[in-house]
């Protein structure tokens, strides 16, 4: 069976500086893949390639077996790719409702989106006419994740979802993501903070200096990580 998302020998560069030097990976329907690695390893670049923001300089990006190098971000989004970018993936000067309204470009009605979003995160309903920029960090991230839960994407990309959030909120967000995974959405999670992502993942890879340094089950990867992050000797 063709995997939903496949990267074959993907190279990517900013101007002349190559950041990814040949990445191969695949995600099946309903599978959660965690992409881990230290800062500056190329994780975010990888997501930008998949979301269509960056065109690979070499190699192929395949979605459902179709080569999609160079497709526009908005077309990929309309085709069912949902990206929650690093930082707060919301429009700070739009209200919560208007933010949700932006999620209707895939042909959903406002009502469907609001129902799904408020169903997952009742707190957002209380704040629906507030500017997103005035929400707390956790609420903003809920609003960002609301896009994933209300648009039912085929593939979900999550970049540093937990960054700067209290553990309890991270738990709540990952619970929502877990429910999506159970419903068969393929998910690619990029995280610097590994534990939450590993708890959810079926499979994990570690990226270091633009290459895949390790690949395996979450438990295997957990061991490898400590050395990558904190510079201890690599365990045998």
């Amino acid at each position: 069976m063709t995997p939903l998302l496949e990267l074959r020998d993907v190279h990517a560069a900013y101007d002349a500086i190559e950041v990814l030097h040949g990445i191969d990976l695949a995600v099946d329907r309903g599978e959660v893949l965690a992409v881990l690695g230290p800062n500056g390893a190329g994780k975010t670049t990888l997501l930008r390639v998949v979301s269509g923001e960056l065109v690979p300089t070499r190699g192929d990006l395949l979605v459902g077996g179709r080569r999609l190098n160079g497709a526009a971000m908005s077309d990929l989004a309309r085709a069912g790719l949902c990206t929650i970018p690093e930082g707060r993936g919301v429009f700070p000067n739009l209200t919560v409702q208007e933010n949700l309204w932006m999620m209707t470009h895939r042909g959903l009605s406002r009502r469907d989106v609001e129902e799904a979003a408020f169903g997952y995160f009742p707190r957002l309903q209380e704040r629906q006419s507030q500017l997103a920029g005035t929400l707390s960090g956790g609420e903003q991230q809920m609003l960002a994740v609301a896009r994933a839960v209300s648009t039912r994407p085929a593939l979900l990309l999550l970049d540093e979802l937990s960054m700067g959030l209290a553990p309890i909120i991270v738990g709540e967000l990952f619970a929502a993501v877990g429910r999506l995974a159970a419903e068969g959405v393929a998910i690619l999670v990029v995280e610097q903070f590994a534990d939450a992502a590993l708890a959810l993942a079926d499979h994990a890879v570690v990226i270091a200096q633009g290459r895949i340094a390790a690949s395996g089950t979450p438990t295997e990867i957990k061991e490898a990580l400590r050395s990558t992050y904190l510079g201890a000797d690599t365990p045998a």
Binding site: C82, T83, F91, N93, M102
Partner: peptide, 14 residues
């Protein structure tokens, strides 16, 4: 207005 806030994010929204 959304693309004023964040052009990339607007495109990611479709």
């Amino acid at each position: 207005r959304a693309s004023v806030d964040n052009r990339t994010l607007a495109a990611l929204n479709g």
